[in-house]
Design a protein around this nucleic acid. Structure first.
Lengths: 356, 356
DNA sequence: TAGATTTACGCTATCGTTTTTCCAAAACCG
DNA sequence: CGGTTTTGGAAAAACGATAGCGTAAATCTA
């Protein structure tokens, strides 16, 4: 590896002190009254030899790394990778780099990751945390390191948070199905106490109860591991609940497996079962039928998260303030929740025929 | 921010020298003959106060950052995020962290990113490079910094590379379609000279010519920006080529837009047009019909890339060797390329009827 | 028991910056 | 012209850890 050129090499070459080079480099020429002459000499030389400052040394000295640590559940999940993309782009414009890592929702792994990030002196954190890392996050905040949570939060902690209106998302979904003539609406979720999952469930329950119906809920094990397992479980659930005419899936992962399950059972959507997914997917409108979904505002989440973090980063006082922003969701109506009406008529007709 | 505890603080507290602490910390106790007694004292104290070494200082001193820079086209693209996920996981086990960034296939942005990474003394690079960054990559290699390319390579550069057998992928796709009775097979690709796109096109052309057919190729502008634009272009292409009975899309992005185009034209798959996508997608088997695709071995690519990089990183000599690994692809046959035979018969029958 | 060897650490320079303090010379001021 | 400011920059001390020597004390050797 070729010897990299340092600020001292430049100083020596130009018969100046490292201090002066540093000032010029950092645009403190005015403040520190460096003559135009020297400034130009320095800039020219730097350009000529292609000098690149050593950020590591800089970080060591200043205590700032200009790195943001981002912990998500799974970087290859479309929701998280979409948000990551947005965040990376904005951060890049503000001279921040992002360290991404996947927690896999594993508390221990997350702790290790936080430790790793701390060792690297990351300036701020963006996380979709698993439960069980409250102490670590608390420690960060106690040390005045900005932390922004998104997607979910930790109830016992007062943090800055960007979430979406999960409750309303489910509520809207149920209402929509009811309006379209579905009356036995099931909710398939994960057996998780994470806040976003909880809110989605509560929104569903409230909406169903408001309509004087009974909630029908399936809570699938969280770490089922194999997709096949999830699909099987959903199939069983559907078979055990014959009268269910609509299902809301609480996550994208569940929706995909649910669609497989429904397909493999030979059922029609929305003829036999209407479907709504939570968290939209680029491909949902290509499915046959296209899939109705509660869409999360990916772009806005990314923007809001970064904005909050940058604020906290730039202003000590600001970082003390903790605010929770709740972004609205949007129900994207497609064919999988098409009004049941027509179907009903046919149905009724055939029933009549049978009954007569 | 609370004052962080340093190795010297520990030394002072325990009446030892920083050196000793460092040795214990780095497991050089044996080599440097540190007594069990001292070792325990140090470890205990470290655990007690929760000391965390400052990687930045360490990096400055050692010249190694234990960071790998990874440049992909778009971190939110399923292909790239899938690979990133795999790479991150493996690297994590080897104490390496990854810096991800999206190049957006923009040469200038890529150059800036490489510069940014260099400033941070990144130990090694993994890239799916746009064209035009040959000089920067050359400079890295000249400085003995390991670089592994994947997905595509730069013909003018002798680098370590992990790619897939794009040529064979297209070839197999064409053969498969021919076997299933399709004879007017079009290829829709991007107007890009990137190696992977080029190989895919060549494989298609060779296969078509081997079968004494004429290639029918659409090269869509690379940066069409809007999806809608791409879809429109594909629609026009289809309308202009009535006899085409099968299309191979050279990328996932094209396949998705192509499917939309076909749907919006009211054409049936595979009845009117059979479809094969290059690069499989989790959702392709949920589409109706399910979509045949050439699948890339995501896991293997990630593994191979990291393995090569780790080798180069651990062994100076190894890093001089440049090898290109070509991984096989796999044609996943689904319904969108279902044999045309039956249809043909019906067709013929109806033709006869019409003609008679 | 003198000298050699081994054991168990310590000293200090160093990595490349930034930052605080300091200083000579020039400029200004009445 | 003596003293005060201003100008333009230098010197040196961090930042936190590591590495190359160095060395005192303990143990061994003959």
């Amino acid at each position: 590896m070729k010897k990299k050129i340092s600020i001292h090499d430049i100083a020596k070459e130009l018969n100046l002190s490292a201090t002066t080079i540093s000032f010029v480099l950092n645009g403190k020429g005015d403040e520190k009254k460096i003559s135009e002459d020297v400034r130009r000499k320095v800039s020219d030389y730097i350009k000529k030899v292609g000098y690149q400052p050593n950020m590591i040394a800089k970080s060591l000295r200043t205590g700032k790394s200009n790195i943001i640590g981002m912990l998500v559940e799974d970087i290859s999940d479309p929701f998280f990778s979409g948000i990551s993309r947005g965040i990376e782009a904005i951060a890049y414009n503000h001279k921040y780099k992002i360290f991404f890592a996947s927690t896999e929702n594993d508390t221990e792994k997350t702790k290790v990751l936080i430790k790793l990030f701390r060792e690297r002196q990351v300036d701020g954190y963006i996380m979709a945390p698993p439960s069980g890392v409250e102490d670590e996050i608390k420690a960060l905040m106690d040390d005045n390191v900005p932390v922004i949570l998104f997607d979910r939060y930790l109830p016992s902690l007062n943090t800055s948070t960007v979430i979406i209106d999960n409750y309303s998302g489910s509520y809207q979904a149920v209402k929509h199905l009811l309006e379209n003539g579905y009356s036995n609406i099931a909710f398939i979720t994960l057996n998780s106490e994470q806040t976003q999952m909880h809110a989605r469930l509560q929104g569903y329950i409230k909406a169903v109860e408001d309509s004087l119906c009974d909630p029908i809920v399936a809570r699938l094990p969280y770490k089922s591991g194999y997709q096949a397992g999830t699909e099987k479980l959903i199939q069983e659930f559907i078979k055990e609940h014959e009268k269910v005419d609509a299902i809301i899936f609480a996550t994208n992962y569940l929706a995909i497996n649910g669609l497989k399950a429904i397909r493999d059972l030979g059922l029609a959507i929305p003829g036999d079962i209407a479907v709504i997914g939570f968290d939209d997917n680029t491909h949902f409108n290509l499915f046959s039928p296209s899939i109705t979904a509660v869409a999360q505002p990916i772009e806005e989440i990314a923007q809001e998260v970064v904005q909050q973090l940058l604020n906290a980063l730039s202003d000590e006082r600001e970082s003390k303030k903790r605010r929770t922003v709740t972004l609205p969701v949007k129900l994207i109506v497609r064919d999988s929740s098409f009004p049941k009406v027509k179907k009903e008529i046919v149905h009724t007709a055939s029933s009549i025929m049978k009954n007569s």
